[in-house]
Amino acid sequence: MSTARQTKVIARTEWKLIARNKTVLFSATLFPLALTALYLIQDAEGPMAAAGLTSIMVAIFSSMTVYMTVTLTAVSRRQDLYLKRLRSGESSDVAIFAGITLPTALLCLAQMIVVVVVLAIIGFEVPVEPWWIVAAALGSIVSCLAMGLGTASVTPNASAAQMTTVPYFLFVIGSVFATPFADSQLMDLTPGGAVVTFARLAFDVPTPGSALTAAAGLVIWTAVGTEMARRFFRWEPRS
């Protein structure tokens, strides 16, 4: 059986589990609405403001919907021995990882699309080169997925996840807000800085960063998370 088919089955099941969790559904719906409201009430205008708000949207969605959820999902599924159950069957490790994370990534993309569509309808600033926003969104989601699995590797249980997710979450959000003040290409190597650079490129705002270094930044964080998961991830709780 192919890894793709295994991934599809596990992801479909994971989606079912998300859909049955009212808290997750509620926050997943509320998030885009709250962020859209933030766009509406701010009084700044022009490309600079649009780039800033877009960076915040991508960073918040990917760090909260993807990073924190993936960490918590992986840890709690491990605690419930569900991961060991999946691993006792035919599924490959890649299919299990992809299957439990894919629905969260898709949910995050859906949230971003909702915000973008709403903003387009109300006549918000249109990006000159929108593909950079797509790059920011996909790069940020992928790096947050990897870091989520990496963090889950060093998180012993679901309660501990509330603490272990804080540093990287603050790092992503903090670097988004710090980048406009730092004015340095080095900020591209932070997950938030990379997103800001892509957003600025999208709205044709001058930036000390470049697409290459921003992409390198997100690749680095993806590699860090992947390597942590590869080295330290356990399929069952420590006895």
């Binding site: 295994q6 079912k16 589990l17 049955r20 419930d80 991961l83 006792s88 069957g89």
Partner: peptide, 27 residues
């Protein structure tokens, strides 16, 4: 076929859904 010492399931799935998922993951 492996029956683990401790059961690990997705608790929010029904018995039928669990069986169907397992079959779908099987070649």
């Amino acid at each position: 076929g492996i029956m683990l010492q401790e059961s690990g399931f997705a608790g929010e799935l029904t018995v039928a859904e669990t069986v169907d998922m397992w079959l779908a993951l099987s070649s």
